[in-house]
């Protein structure tokens, strides 16, 4: 309960009956809206962050794949490719994947222990190109000198997934904004209902000299308290869900899930949601009351 000295005069002296805004349902509506907005925003920011992390890793990475069933010839080709890559000053991070690395890549599909020596696996060499020109140059050299060597450009494969993630992220952010807009619409309806319920008393207050601000401050105060209560509840539930989701994600060690996670600026955005919800409620209440009162003399 807010101490009386911090309450507006109209609330302190009960100019309008003390009552729960919209019969006590508004805090729960705000709680639900804040919960949905926080989850939507967090999902959006996490996806965007994951996509950006993925993009940063893929910007320069490529893999040279050599498909050669003969082990001796394969070793020669690996040496030839490595030499070409090492000769180029704009290529770095050259790493020939070991048999163990290759087995680990295949095992999720074939099962542990099922990858035998009789299974012909290609040789793979990871590297990073400083720019697109370097990548094109290497591609040209390999095409000319090493048969069956193929460059696998990571970004090319994963670009559509990145675009999809972006669309999902923007959709989630839009959904969060729409949820807050829906909350504002509910506040408008609640304020109008309150004004209608107390129209006679408000008219009397006006006729004995009350300024619009007396009524406006009262509604602002009531909706601020109500929205703050609802926003706090919604935010706490969202945090509890975060902990659960965080625990589940900890068990996922690959793919976008591993990259997903709220960056520091994402936490700031999420923390702003309940604050924005309260401010939005107060501003919406004020504008609605002011507009309604101005219709009367």
């Amino acid at each position: 309960m807010i101490p009386e000295r911090y309450q507006p005069r109209a609330e302190r002296f009960h100019f309008l009956p003390r009552e729960k805004v919209t019969g006590g349902t508004l805090p729960w509506i705000v709680a639900l809206m804040v919960l949905l907005a926080v989850l939507g925003l967090a999902a959006g920011v996490s996806l965007a962050s994951g996509v950006w992390s993925m993009g940063a890793g893929l910007e320069s990475g490529f893999t040279v794949q050599i498909v050669e069933p003969n082990p001796d010839l394969k070793a020669d080709k690996v040496a030839a490719v490595t030499a070409i890559l090492e000769d180029d000053t704009e290529i770095s991070g050259i790493r020939v994947l070991s048999d163990a690395d290759l087995t680990a890549l295949v095992e999720p599909w074939l099962g542990t222990g099922n990858v035998g020596e009789d299974l012909p696996l290609p040789a793979m060499i990871d590297a990073e190109a400083a720019n697109d020109r370097a990548l094109a140059r290497v591609r040209q050299q390999l095409d000319a000198s090493v048969e069956s060597a193929r460059i696998d450009d990571h970004a090319r494969w994963l670009a559509p997934i990145g675009k999809l993630a972006w669309v999902l992220a923007i959709s989630a952010l839009t959904a969060a904004l729409l949820v807050l807009a829906a909350m504002a619409a509910i506040v408008v309806l609640s304020v109008r209902a309150g004004l209608g319920r107390h129209a006679e008393t408000i008219n009397v207050l006006h006729l004995i000299g009350a300024e619009d601000s007396v009524i406006t401050h009262l509604f602002e105060y009531r909706f601020a308290v109500t929205a703050a209560l609802g926003a706090a509840v919604g935010f706490l539930i969202a945090m509890a869900l975060f902990l659960i989701i965080d625990g589940l994600l900890a068990g996922v060690s690959s793919g976008l899930a591993a990259l997903a996670g709220l960056p520091w600026w994402g936490w700031i955005l999420v923390l702003l949601v309940p604050v924005i919800a309260v401010l939005l409620s107060v501003i919406t209440a004020r504008i609605t009351v002011e507009r309604a009162l101005k219709k009367a003399l």
Partner: peptide, 28 residues
């Protein structure tokens, strides 16, 4: 606020006590 009005239908504020009704113009 420079005018006092006795309305024909009184227009007293139902949720307020007699004391608070009379105090209303001063508190406003």
């Amino acid at each position: 606020r420079r005018i006092g009005v006795v309305f024909q239908d009184f227009r007293l504020v139902d949720h307020l006590t007699s004391f608070d009704n009379v105090a209303l113009p001063l508190r406003i």
